[in-house]
Amino acid sequence: MPTVRLFAGMREKMETREIAIPARDVRGLLDDLALRKAGALASVLFDDPASEARVPHQDLRVLVNGRSTSFLDGLDTALDDDDTVTLMLHGARGYPGG
């Protein structure tokens, strides 16, 4: 089962650091998580949790084995049992600087 690692705000919302989720791709993994913690978590995973469209929230960054899914297959990125998925909420808006 892929392992999900959580940090900062995501860790607070899930109340755990790490969780194993039986999912075959990133979409399935986010759906599973949203079901487990329907309230606060679902609203940071998806733009509109009630919508069928399943658009990831703009602040959500998903890494599979340290690589952003933006440069893999997005929500369709396939997952193997020994994969590590990292979920992070960035929440930055400005451009550019820092």
Binding site: R5, F7, A8, G9, L63, L89, H90, G91, R93
Partner: peptide, 27 residues
């Protein structure tokens, strides 16, 4: 703007720049 951006309204106040340690390590 600063209030609406979670990083400047929640992330930096809660964790400071040190929030980056795990982020950069994961990458």
């Amino acid at each position: 703007d600063l209030t609406e951006a979670p990083l400047t309204s929640e992330g930096l106040p809660a964790y400071g720049t040190l929030a980056l340690m795990n982020v950069i390590n994961e990458h």
